[in-house]
Design a protein around this nucleic acid. Structure first.
Length: 620
RNA sequence: GCCCCGGUAGCUCAGCUGGAUAGAGCAACGGACUUCUAAUCCGUCGGUCGGAGGUUCGAAUCCUCCCCGGGGUGCCA
């Protein structure tokens, strides 16, 4: 960047204001925040400083007098219109109107490869835990959020220049999996299934049957306990219990075989793994998330590490025996973290501690972000506390990694209850995607009948995925949200398709300009002079992009960037209505400025979508 | 019982971490298409920001208590 290009107006104003405040209040000690932000009232200016009010308290003056003193010392040469007492409003807001050429040169400065977001000098290594499917189970809407939000957070961190390692903590180990493996082996021996061709749906059915069997036992035992050994109840349930207990015992034995590397058990487990991951990773691909096999880090991969980890906790006195179980007690957390059951078995907290150890000490994470359901809040609080206490979150250089649970809420149906099918089952994620694509295709077919069939299919697919992801990303993460095809695909208002439409319009504009013989390349490097209010408003919003990406990325809040992209698309639509570009009577200067502004807007929209993992379309 | 998270327009949601008159979309009503793509734009209607106190120049935002909804709470994951 050359010295004569003007930086981001906000940071320039911040420097100027700090200088003015120092000059106006020479006795002031401590930090000074000029509190510069976009104007709340665009008719009064482009930016405002709210610094006078808090400063007034510190120096014991009236806010307005402080504002006057600041204005007197403020030098905005080269960036904004001169300020005076007229610029002060209300209790002491100072309004600033930028010079058109200052906006123009700031835009030119931003119009480079990285769109005003250069790579940081000290990038971090960040592990993002996402997706987290379970063997023998389909992906459902819960995985939608973990995958879509997790991938968006990962992309945001990548966009900020950090090194991201995605980790899918696949539920691929433990008794439930052993039950499926056991059942499959039985069914194979009976000759009633062919494991070479079995589908994930069939596996899922077997999984549920195995689970139900386990639950039947527990329910029966509970019932007997309640009726106090009633002879009739016992007789009625005896057979079922016996059956369930036998299955349970066989599953436990199967788990031991699996753990000891028994050939048939392991090969069946491998088959279950292949089938599940094949289907789930295909869905991840359909969702256009960057989640592949290389990101899978199943619970099974930690199994050899759990024993040594427990020994370590015990020998160093980090964990203690409590009522027969091994627990880690952490100051400030009432509930101790259980890491070993009375019967010697390990728990999910044990595996999660091993995961933290690996992620921090082997993968070198400065930060580990868990994109997991909000109901796990206490679990992660416990695990983070226990792992930190044990030193597993400490890197070899002695720094302690930041562990964070990026929690998300439920996906609800239109009845405001967790989304289920009519028969009360979890909605399969793939079914959800398929339906969205079908609906989008109908819309594209009717609106763009002249496009080739193959292109319409691609457009429909991208619009559907964009609609689903935008809907999932645009609300506050921790809140539940209501899933509605009609709303997200309505193509009206605050939706993914609306943002894509703005991009498509700009592409069309450029295409048309070329057709009209406009020298687009030279227009895109022309001097920009912004006169019209709609141009200025759009330009100022474009300039906020780097700040918005940082805010969204640093706080793990993709919804902020979503909101910005909608605002930008909306502002473009207003600009597009008010500022003709290729129409007759537009002088070349305005045309080139507007064309360049439109194309820069498009680049920001596309970059923002890419940063969130939202696909775009060339035309629609 | 204790802990966590929510409560903003009829509906679905924002609200830039304490700033000026609380904003969008949908729904309702009224306008703008031989058009640089109307999947758009403009206007009207719609609010005791769950309630009550408090903190201060200023509170949807911070602190306390209460009400409502959801979730969690030691040997499942």
């Amino acid at each position: 960047m050359t010295t004569d290009t003007i930086q981001d107006p906000k940071s320039v104003l911040e420097t100027r204001f700090v200088d003015a405040i120092r000059a106006a209040l020479p006795d002031l000690e401590g930090e000074v925040d000029p509190l510069i932000g976009p104007s709340r009232q665009p008719e009064l200016g482009d930016f405002q400083s709210n610094a006078a009010m808090p400063l007034a308290k510190r120096v014991g003056m009236k806010p307005r007098d402080v504002a006057c003193a600041i204005v007197e010392k403020l030098d905005v040469t080269g960036i904004a219109n001169p300020v005076s007492d007229e610029s002060i409003a209300g209790p002491g807001f100072i309004n600033i109107s930028l010079l058109p050429e200052a906006i123009g040169s700031a835009l030119s400065a931003m119009d480079d490869e990285d769109l005003g977001l250069p790579a940081p000098a000290d990038p971090e290594t960040i592990v993002v835990d996402l997706c987290g499917v379970n063997l023998a189970k389909q992906m459902h809407v819960g995985h939608l959020r973990s995958s879509v939000i997790g991938d968006a957070i990962a992309r945001l961190k990548e966009r900020l220049g950090h090194t991201v390692i995605r980790q899918s903590h696949v539920g691929d180990w433990g008794l439930p999996i052993a039950m499926v493996v056991q059942r499959l082996i039985e069914l194979e021996d009976e000759g009633s299934i062919d494991t070479k061709t079995i589908s994930l749906d069939e596996l899922n059915t077997i999984y549920r049957a195995a689970q139900a069997q386990c639950k039947a036992e527990k329910k029966a035992l509970d019932l007997i306990e309640r009726v106090g050994g009633h002879a009739k109840a016992e007789a009625e349930l005896e057979a079922r219990i016996e059956d369930a207990q036998r299955a349970f015992k066989l599953a436990q034995e199967r788990l031991v075989k699996l753990q000891s590397g028994d050939e048939r058990s392991v090969s069946m487990w491998n088959r279950v793994y292949e089938i599940t991951m094949g289907a789930c990773l295909a869905t991840c691909a359909a969702l256009m998330t960057n989640i592949t096999d290389e990101h899978s880090a199943g619970e099974s991969t930690y199994r050899e590490e759990l024993g040594p980890l427990i020994s370590d906790l015990e020998s160093r006195g980090v964990a203690e025996i409590d009522d027969g179980a091994l627990v880690v007690k952490v100051d400030g957390i009432k509930e101790p973290t259980l890491v070993r059951k009375r019967n010697g078995g390990y728990l999910y907290a044990t595996t999660d501690m091993a995961a933290i150890k690996r992620r921090v000490q082997e993968l070198g994470a400065d930060q580990v972000i868990y994109c997991v359901d909000a109901r796990q809040a206490l679990h992660f609080k416990q695990v983070f506390g226990a792992a930190t206490k044990a030193g597993y979150a400490t890197k070899p250089d002695g720094t302690v990694a930041h562990l964070e649970h990026a929690a998300f809420g439920n996906v609800l149906g239109e009845d405001n209850k967790p989304l289920k099918t009519r028969s009360g089952e979890n909605v399969k994620l793939q079914d959800l995607l398929d339906e969205a694509v079908v609906r989008a295709k109908q819309e594209v077919d009717s609106r763009s009948a002249d496009f080739p069939e193959e292109e319409r299919a691609t457009i429909a697919n991208n619009i559907a995925i964009a609609a689903i992801k935008y809907a999932d990303l645009s609300t506050e993460r921790v809140k539940d949200y209501v899933f509605s095809f009609d709303r997200m695909l309505a193509f009206e208002g605050d939706t993914g398709p609306y943002v894509l439409y703005a991009i498509a319009r700009i592409n069309n504009l450029v295409r048309k300009a070329r057709d009209n013989g406009v020298d687009v390349e030279s227009a895109l490097s022309s001097e920009m002079t912004l006169d019209d209010p709609a141009e200025r408003a759009l330009a100022l919003l474009v300039l906020r992009y780097p700040t918005m990406v940082r805010a969204a990325g640093e706080n793990d809040e993709p919804n902020r960037l979503c909101g910005y992209l909608y605002d930008l698309a909306s502002m473009f639509a207003k600009f597009y209505e008010k500022c003709p570009i290729l129409k007759d009577g537009v002088d070349e200067g305005s045309r080139d400025t507007r064309l360049r502004l439109a194309v820069l807007t498009k680049r920001v929209l596309e970059d923002g979508c890419a940063t969130l993992g939202i696909p775009t379309v060339e035309r629609m």
